[in-house]
Design a protein around this nucleic acid. Structure first.
Length: 479
DNA sequence: TGAAATGTTGGGGCG
DNA sequence: ACGCCCCAACATTTC
């Protein structure tokens, strides 16, 4: 039995469903510590939106630790050195944590493990934030999966994810813990306050995450297969940022959803399948660690993406002249989140209509999304570009107008996020560039003044993308 | 988790 | 009654 232990908190700001914590509470004295270390995140230090979230998540978590008789220590610096210093100071027998599987985070763990081994301090790492350890899933030939469906079939045939353990009522004492640094010294908050829309939309922290889960599983889940595709309604779980910060356990989400399976089996299965996409993304990035920046299909590395800063900026700011695209990009900017259906549309638009590199989209999403997850972000963008695992074929080009007509028929979503179009009638609002100028005038719109002209013409852009992508795409399809 | 082009079918108008 | 054409609706192929 361990006398004194450190619980190294990484992306698991929660007490419920936490395997590392289950181990940690067996100690007589326990020091919960969060170590901020931007320099060890490789090319992906936390973006602005997630820094905002993290500040609040740390505050909420520190307070819930105090409620169970413990205290959070925040430190800044290289993890291995910081932990070793702390282990000496606190006279520790064991360090426990939940693994992260991003390449830079894994490398950081390897350094921590080596440093602890050198001091003969024992450590235990758990797969606490995923349903299945990405290392343990493999094809019959022992290779990693590159297609979702067989991956999902494989893991669904395995023993179900373990039942989550509830939050402990009390934690071991933190006797002799160092003070650490003040949260403010991490400088997570934006210098200019752009986060008003964030505050309106989100409550970071474990408590709010559990509330959100109950609300979803007792509400929108029943209609999930169709509700999830309509951006104007809350048809999705909205759990993604909570999951990204580990404020809720994936096993808790899995088993809570599973309890709804009796009343709505197909809806529940659809939702569980989405949870497995998250595991699949982690599996792919774990086994193909360069796919955060490089296409998985090598032939895409030579694709001549355009370099057009102005077009990129128009896309980022929601000024493309395509209402659904602009609505999505503005929702992202205002709230740190974008509906998944719209993510697919804006991603397809950047890559195929504008022929700009998917990496630019990935970087923008990384900086602006509160739910940014390196594995999901990389998989999603390579999916859109056609260059990745289980990707959309090169010729799949979303028509932003027909997508809007299909999934935002009454334009409620468009009108909410592109308010200048609020008075444009339904028949015209999805494609103002095709509307008679007089009709637009009546709704207070002059294209080029009140709302942009379309940045590209759909049919021409589609043909341009097909011409450019056909060569590389066909090569890939037969490989 | 696409969209457009092309092909097929069948009802109805018409001479 | 019959053949012809048009076109919508649906299916298939192609990108």
């Amino acid at each position: 039995m361990t006398r004194r232990a450190i619980w190294w908190i990484r992306r698991d700001f929660r007490l419920d469903d936490n395997p590392a914590l289950v181990r940690a509470v067996q100690a007589n004295a326990l020091l919960p510590v969060y170590i901020h270390s931007d320099a060890e995140e490789g090319a992906w230090p936390l973006g602005g939106a997630q820094r905002w979230w993290l500040a609040r998540s740390l505050t909420a978590f520190a307070s819930s630790l105090e409620n169970v008789g413990s205290r959070l220590t925040i430190l800044q610096g290289e993890a291995a050195k910081t932990l070793v210093d702390l282990a000496r100071q606190f006279d520790v027998d064991e360090v426990v944590w939940n693994r992260r599987f991003e390449p830079a985070a894994l490398a950081q763990e390897r350094r921590v493990e080596a440093a602890l081994d050198a001091l003969q301090i024992s450590w235990k790492a758990f797969c606490g934030n995923h349903l299945f350890d990405p290392e343990e899933v493999a094809t019959k030939e022992g290779r990693p999966y590159q297609v979702y469906t067989p991956f999902a079939r494989n893991v669904r045939a395995r023993p179900a994810p373990a039942q989550p353990k509830p939050a402990p009522k009390t934690l071991p004492s933190v006797d002799g813990a160092p003070n650490g640094v003040a949260l403010e010294s991490l400088q997570l908050e934006p210098r200019i306050d752009w986060a008003a829309g964030f505050r309106e939309q989100w409550i970071p922290g474990e408590g709010a995450a559990l509330v959100r889960l109950r609300k979803f599983t007792s509400g929108a889940l029943a209609d999930y297969p169709t509700g999830r595709d309509q951006p104007s309604i809350d048809g999705s779980s909205l759990l993604s940022p909570h999951l990204a910060f580990g404020e809720i356990g994936i096993r808790r989400v899995w088993h809570t959803a599973l309890q709804s399976k009796i009343s709505s089996p197909t809806s529940t299965d659809k939702f569980l399948a989405e949870l497995l996409w998250r595991d699949f993304a982690t599996h792919v990035l774990y086994h193909f660690p360069s796919t955060d920046l490089k296409p998985l299909r090598a032939e895409y590395a030579r694709f001549p993406w355009r370099n057009d800063r102005e077009a990129l900026r128009a896309w980022q700011r929601g000024q493309t002249g395509y209402p659904l695209v602009d609505a999505g990009m503005r929702q992202l900017w205002a709230t740190g989140w974008m509906h998944n259906r719209v993510r697919m549309v804006v991603a397809s638009f950047l890559v195929k209509h504008l022929l700009l590199p998917w990496q630019e989209g990935a970087k923008w999403f990384w900086d602006t999304l509160v739910d940014a997850d390196l594995a999901s972000n990389s998989l999603g963008w390579q999916w859109a570009a056609g260059s990745g695992a289980d990707a959309a074929p090169y010729f799949r080009i979303f028509n932003p107008t027909s997508q809007a007509e299909k999934f935002d028929a009454d334009a409620a979503y468009i009108r909410r996020w592109v308010p200048e179009l609020a008075r444009v009638p339904n028949q015209l609002v999805h494609a103002p560039f095709d509307a008679p100028p007089l009709a637009l005038r009546a709704a207070g719109i002059t294209l080029g003044l009140d709302y942009p002209h379309a940045i590209v013409e759909h049919t021409k852009a589609r043909e341009r993308a097909l011409a450019a992508l056909t060569a590389v795409g066909k090569k890939g399809a037969t490989a």
